[in-house]
Simulated assay, not measured.
Amino acid sequence: TMSFADSANITLFGKGDTLHQQVLASFPLCDLTEEDLSQNPQFCKLLVTLAQHVDSTGLTLSLKTELDKAEQKLQSHRRNWLRSQGLFQALKEMIQEHCVRKHYSTFYETMEKCLLVVQCVRMLDPSSTTDKEQPNILGLEPQQVLQLMPLEKNVQRMQRGLPKELEKHLKKKCLSLLCYCHPEWENDSENLKCTKLSHLAAQVDKDKKRTESLKESILEKTVLLQRQTRLYLSELIKCIKLLQTLILDHRLKIQTDLDKKKLDYFEGKCELVVQKIKSELVDVQLDTYTPDAISAHRKIREKLESEFKSCQEEKQHVELKLASFELLGKEFQALAEEYGKLRQQIEMKNWALKEFTQYKNK
């Protein structure tokens, strides 16, 4: 259950869709959607209450305050370090330019030796974070290295001329940076460049702020794009499911219509093949049966039919005789068999007589 104070905070925070939008705006790093919040109202109330105590990154207000103070302190130390580091780099660049020109100068020789001695002393002098009992490099002590400093008068002369030389060097670098940022100002006079140089820091700061604003805008657009992408994918999935349902519901009907059309097609194709076969048979018959062959076949048929007719008449005559013989009974059958044997003997004797007569004539 929610307390009365939490309910009041929720009322002040927003209602309905506005509540969901404000919750999503308060926690941009969370992968949530308005649908998730709608389906889980208690979780939405918890986020509303939690938004009163934490920022958009998830830090509590007290921790955020401490973090801001630590960030300010860090920035202060960072500026001091960058200031000294920038000065050190400028001095090294001045020495390098002097070495490139190969022009002897007591000022630069003294400055180079001072820098080297100071660097060595810092390396030999243990800091508060290192072990003080650790042996020094090569057994050297800082006081031994300090003895290598140039003459005092040369050092003092170098210190008096250093601000002017450093100013000239830095001015040259600033003008080079100005020409790099605005190449169209390269041909302007030095006084005009110095005047424009005074506005360079403000312009760079303005460009930096504009870049940060663009980054924030890009981040917001990225989050919005991710939400829209998820919404688009969810809608696309719904459309796919609806399409699958339509396909499953109408597939059988479509398949039946398709099968019917295929059946009609194959029936028409089969009929065409049958007609083509009949046409080929007619062509074969026309090539095989010429008019002369048909006339000869007709004569042969007439002759065969006449012989068949005479054979049928003879068959009927024999059947009539056979029927008359069968009426006489078994006694006549024995006489018929004996008559048949006698006829065979007569035929054999006639054949033998014929053969004998032929042999005798030879």
Rank of each mutant, 00 (worst) to 15 (best):
T106A: 13
A293L: 08
I10R: 06
M94F: 11
Q316S: 07
Q244H: 13
D17R: 11
E71A: 12
S62I: 15
W185V: 13
F107L: 14
R251W: 12
E93M: 04
S76A: 07
A334Q: 09
V54Q: 04
I247Y: 10
D287T: 10
M123T: 15
E184R: 03
H77A: 09
K253Q: 15
A334W: 09
F13L: 01
E66D: 08
Q228P: 01
V318D: 03
N9R: 09
Q358D: 14
D188K: 03
K206I: 06
H317R: 03
K15W: 05
K261P: 01
Y180N: 05
T106I: 09
R227T: 06
L177M: 03
D17P: 00
K315P: 00
E271A: 10
L74D: 02
A296N: 04
S56M: 04
E220F: 00
E152R: 11
L263N: 07
Q21H: 05
K299Q: 12
D249G: 02
H103M: 14
T60A: 03
Q203K: 03
L67S: 04
M348P: 00
E34V: 12
Q244Y: 11
L322S: 08
K260A: 10
L46R: 12
Q39D: 08
R79Y: 12
L353Y: 02
S198C: 09
Q312A: 13
L175F: 02
S26D: 02
S279Q: 08
E319Y: 08
S56H: 03
V100H: 07
L87V: 01
K164M: 07
L29D: 09
F308A: 04
D257R: 15
V23D: 00
L286S: 07
D125Q: 13
I95V: 14
Q333W: 05
V223Q: 05
S7M: 10
P183K: 13
K260Q: 11
I95L: 10
K241S: 12
E152W: 01
V282I: 15
K206Q: 15
I237H: 07
L233G: 00
V121G: 03
L231N: 07
K73C: 04
K132P: 00
H20I: 15
E319M: 10
S56I: 07
D205N: 10
P150I: 11
L12C: 10
Q147E: 08
C30H: 09
V48Q: 01
K278F: 13
S213F: 04
K172E: 08
L146M: 12
A201V: 14
E34F: 00
T106C: 06
C30N: 11
D257F: 09
A90T: 15
V121E: 06
P142C: 11
V318F: 10
C99Q: 15
K64E: 06
K238L: 15
F325D: 06
N350G: 05
F332K: 03
E347S: 06
K260W: 14
G329N: 06
K253N: 14
C239I: 09
E314I: 05
R78P: 00
P142R: 09
L258N: 08
T256W: 13
D259N: 11
T288I: 12
S279C: 04
E152Y: 07
H250W: 13
A25N: 10
F107Y: 14
W351I: 12
H297Q: 12
P126A: 09
L175Q: 07
E133W: 04
V54C: 03
W81R: 12
L19N: 01
L59P: 00
